[in-house]
Amino acid sequence: MFPDNQTSQRTGYQQRQLSDRSIQWLFITPTLILLALFNIFPLFYSLYLSFTDFSAIGTAAPVWVGFKNFSTLLNDPQIWKYFATTGRFAFLSVGLQTVLGFALAMLLREKFRGSGLITTLILIPMMLSPVVVGFFWKSIFNPSSGIFNYALGYFHPASAPGPSWLDSSSRALWAVVIVDVWMWTPFVMLLCLSGLNAIPDYLYEAAAIDRASAWFQFWRITLPQVLPLLMIAVLFRTIEAFKSFDLVMGMTGGGPGDSTELVAVNLFRIAFEGQWRTSYASALAYIVLVIIMAISNVYIRNLNKVRGEG
């Protein structure tokens, strides 16, 4: 009787282990299949395409051309220009977002009546659809009927016109940066706020005992404590800036001329609109992919560090 009981217990246990295992596979497999179909396969397929000559709307099958697409791309000064524009856009908008987002977080750090409401109100822009918002900003930037110049103090556009924004090749990128900053400063603020709230009070109390100046407290306590989260915000925004597509398409479509032509926008133009150079676009896509993978790798590593600490 005794050994019998033991075996039945063990088989019961084994059965549950076994069913746990099958449940595990049952639960994960659908997700993995979908990912394989919509991610792994497309990635390998476009890697293959990038070494061929092929157009998605043509009838000819892909022809292997080796590294030709890549060498053409890397020798094309226009492409380098678009990368430079993207870099400038990323640098300007992420830089401004970081400074402003941190400043806003410092302002909202201490709770007051209605601070929750104010914080949520500030967060609204980042939840909106970039293309819709970007398109409406066109009317805001309009030099004669828009409120942007009006708010800058040009109250009589008919007699004293303010600067034009989206029609000017030197200011259009700035206009895009302004809207991007408007949309995403709240994101940086949100992350900074969470970092600030996590700083233990005793650090400040200890500093107060030592009669440390507010300046010293900021540089030695506040900033280092928030830095990991701030870094994450910056990395995340940098990745997003390199992907930027919706906002520019809504606001300028890359123009005037090619002054706001970001890499993602140009990629779309090569791959779809009119040109349909599928294999060439795949090569460019892979270059962008490698850049973004490099940045995301840093991002994930930092994320793990922060999570490990928290």
Binding site: I28, T31, L32, L35, F38, N39, F41, P42, L43, Y45, S46, L49, A56, I239, F242, K243, F245, V263, A264, L267, F268, A271, F272, T278, A281, S282, A285, Y286, V288, L289, I292, M293, S296, I300
Partner: peptide, 23 residues
């Protein structure tokens, strides 16, 4: 696996769309 799942979000949509368009 988790990183792989997340990586779909990191790519510009156009990169993903080219092969999917053909498919």
């Amino acid at each position: 696996l988790l990183f792989f799942i997340l990586s779909t979000r990191m790519l510009p949509p156009v990169v993903v769309t080219i092969p999917i368009f053909i498919m």
